[in-house]
Write a protein that binds this DNA or RNA. Sequence first.
DNA 1: GTCTATACTTCGATAGAC
DNA 2: GTCTATCGAAGTATAGAC
Lengths: 213, 213
Amino acid sequence: MARLPRVSPDAILAAAALEFAERGFAGARVDRIARRAQVNKAMLYYHFRSKQHLYRTLLRRMFTLAAARLQTIAASTASPADKVAGALAGMAAFIAEHAPFPRIMLREVAEGGVHLDADTLKALAAVPRAFGAIVHQGVESGAFRRVDPMFAYFSMLAPLVFYLAGAPIRKEIGHLHVAGFRSRPPAEFVRHMQDAVRRSFARDPQRKRGRSS
Amino acid sequence: MARLPRVSPDAILAAAALEFAERGFAGARVDRIARRAQVNKAMLYYHFRSKQHLYRTLLRRMFTLAAARLQTIAASTASPADKVAGALAGMAAFIAEHAPFPRIMLREVAEGGVHLDADTLKALAAVPRAFGAIVHQGVESGAFRRVDPMFAYFSMLAPLVFYLAGAPIRKEIGHLHVAGFRSRPPAEFVRHMQDAVRRSFARDPQRKRGRSS
DNA sequence: GTCTATACTTCGATAGAC
DNA sequence: GTCTATCGAAGTATAGAC
């Protein structure tokens, strides 16, 4: 919409997302990002101060977009159960639009956030927070049994991120003819998770004293 | 048990595990591994041919040990439900003994296995396979509803690995005073997962036609 | 804003003495 | 088997012309 569509910065961020997802911060090569974005390397350093600054900018943006998606769902008028199912579908859709996201997320958890500044860490923290809010609503309203929202976050999002980030290595392993490694499509895994979570969050059937074995 | 307890190779592997977990393959420094293991760098290259060879040796060993733990549980005479709970506890115990494991696992999934050879990939594949076998037994025996064993693997192990690997970054975020980021101890999360999985694998209560809404 | 050429640094790996 | 010293390849970043 701007006067001249200065494609450079966005093209650089898109190329950086691919490179950082595939190789990680240390393994990523600035030359390769520049080549992928079809810009000169000096141009990259002109727009972003350093490799680290580029990385932080990219991650802040990604985490903010992902959290926004979840916040929209949290603020909707749907039932808690539908919000939880919607959160899983929403994150799967977000990843379909931003393919490098899950691998970057996995890497950053493993890194322990060492390359991130406070702002970027806060942007990252907004993702589990938005998710936890949805679960918290469901527990407070009595729709779910008492589950810890942060625990629920890990038990729902981790499988999704893991499964979608794991497509390349499953493909590698598949080449070795290892039994049971046909990779089923993401949509089927999302349905599995929706089903699993619905069952796992459901309140216990009411007994006389509400106490099970 | 050997004549002279040549500590070098094992010390190098232990130091490498820490370094690769913290920094990844590309970020790891051979000098740092040697210093951590208190051996000369040339000695490291004498025992292991290269950084890549050291990495593959380490991962092959780790994956093989983890898979063996699961295979033992799979071969036991416990009920499927107990095996599943035991697999979660067993993996948590394995990670307690091998702290670098979850971060390395996360990184390798994100890497897509690019640094691994066929043997190491097969060792990695043995982990989900052993896990899938346990779930498969439960489904076949009628103890569980029909769940895809590989899907079940991702929905159970990913949260555990993610949660345990995520301790450092949660600590970082906690320093920023972000709400809801007190990190609860691993044992509590294991219980949460055991509970969640038990509910999620349970067969539907028998209705007249076995068909729900 | 854009490019070329290059300075400076780090790192994996080895040669060669003991 | 063990160590010191160092080579050569990459890799981040910038200077300076246009």
